[in-house]
Design a protein around this nucleic acid. Structure first.
Lengths: 276, 276
DNA sequence: CTCGCTATGGAATATACTTTCCATAGCAGA
DNA sequence: TCTGCTATGGAAAGTATATTCCATAGCGAG
């Protein structure tokens, strides 16, 4: 064992972990991964707890500490205990404090948006009709290709959906209108279109959804109200109410809906393939 | 001694301390005062350390714990340690189970993701250091141009930031790598770069952040752990821990952080312009 | 002033944790 | 296939910590 000195700060420690982790045996690697992912637990845990959480024996965790240059777990723990930033007065109190700490300070703003995001998520489960969601998933999973369109602030959601579907091996086309290219002739019967738009609604998105409907594709709409111009286009309307802040729509709830769509469609597809 | 049950939460504990502290003898009063003033030390200290810091004997501190209804110091400490660790462990395993059980109807999935999103938001307020956030906002608002880079799943966040900054009249360039075009020479001294990447980290994003740093731009990193390759590049590291589900990173918390950045920078800019 | 009660400090004990050690399993090279 | 090395798990030893106990100091009441 190379007799190196113990890291003197958490930074140094992480550097050292990065440095050695490639040449580490399996169990020690598990320790490294766990520590990097959960550095906050070290200060308040025992070796036994850390080892169990990392899926190794306490002795293995000890060896890990020693490889890093510490005399043992206790020394490593001292590092974390000294630089321990308390997380509690638990959530609500902390949020309150954050908010009060200077009305317009960035962290006060963050607190606001976090709270708004939580509210949006709460309402999401209520406003989404399970049956509509089921039908939408079915339509998407049966489509030979999924077209996705969403511009301006909805573009984040569109790009995330495109990424997710691609990862799930679902044939996907993201209509990003780069170079003002409108590729609505790419949509065919048997395809599906996901159109995302919020007030003030984007004309291009609505146009593409309409073109898709005319071409015989199923259209799934993600929008913000029943007054959306997408309502005449399709019965598959997933409405998400999110807190607005001036021009800034929080997308927490919309993104969660997007992930749910992706995973649901992906697994449905897989099951269908296995079933055949 | 009145045989009351132990407080079940930190709030209850503090209530109880307030309640009894008037009728407490000198040394026990010292303990009460110290605990109320430094509750954050309890989770990471031993009785001996707490006692010394409070200026009493360990046995006195023990009596104090018992007066509050605890069996001893350990039980009281567990309260603080547990409250530090969020209900966040084995979230991915939970989702994995859900997925394997096949019972994942779309709306059940949605509920899971909503819950995961809420957790992510809660931890966000803890993992973000207000000072780092302040400095990051300052750097961004002083930049003559903000460059944004984030690829793959981080692209949603990048595009949202670009949209938001543009709306806020902040000069912005989104490095989207369309056509594999790498425009890193566009970054100059006095600019700022926001680099967003999550494990497995995208080499292009890191490269652009490095190029920015070399060019003399301030770099703000949005990433998922202290082990991120962006850590050597910049001290302005905003880490967001979010529940992963296979390849699917929920972005609720990251998006909230993005909105906070946009609004904070936007208003800072506006104030500066009015001030001049 | 004395008695009796409570508070206090320190030492003794018990417990829990860390750390080490050893036997064995696994693996790579001869 | 055998040999030697490394990795691993489990248990034992050591250490630190929590907890209890008791002797005594302090204090108020009679």
């Amino acid at each position: 064992m190379d007799a190196v000195s113990a890291p003197a700060s958490i930074e140094e420690l992480l550097d050292r972990i990065m440095e050695v982790s490639d040449g580490l045996p399996k169990r020690l690697r598990q320790c490294a991964d766990y520590v990097v992912a959960n550095p906050d637990r070290i200060a308040v845990s025992t070796v036994a707890e850390m080892a169990e959480a990392a899926g190794v024996q306490p002795s293995a965790f000890m060896r890990f500490c020693q490889v890093l240059g510490f005399s043992g777990f206790s020394q490593m723990q001292r590092l974390f205990r000294d630089s321990y930033i308390p997380a509690w007065p638990d959530y609500s109190t902390r949020l309150e404090k954050l908010r009060q700490s200077g009305a317009g300070s960035p962290s006060a703003l963050l607190a606001e948006f976090v709270e708004a995001g939580r509210l949006s998520l709460e309402t999401l489960t209520r406003t989404i009709d399970p049956r509509t969601l089921d039908v939408a998933v079915k339509a998407l999973s049966e489509a030979s290709m999924v077209h996705i369109v969403g511009l301006r602030r909805a573009f984040s959601v569109a790009s995330y959906l495109a990424y997710g579907f691609e990862k799930m091996n679902v044939p996907t086309m993201l209509h990003d209108h780069v170079g003002k290219l409108d590729s609505h002739h790419a949509i065919r019967a048997g395809d599906a279109v996901i159109a995302i738009t919020f007030a003030p609604y984007s004309a291009e998105t609505v146009a593409l959804a309409e073109a898709g409907a005319r071409a015989g594709a199923s259209v799934v709409a993600i929008t913000d109200s029943l007054a959306s111009p997408l309502r005449p286009v399709t019965p598959l309307l997933l409405t998400v109410q999110e807190a607005d802040f001036g021009d800034f729509r929080l997308l927490s709830a919309t993104l969660s809906l997007a992930v749910a769509l992706v995973v649901a469609v992906g697994t449905a597809n897989r099951e269908r393939q296995n079933g055949i």
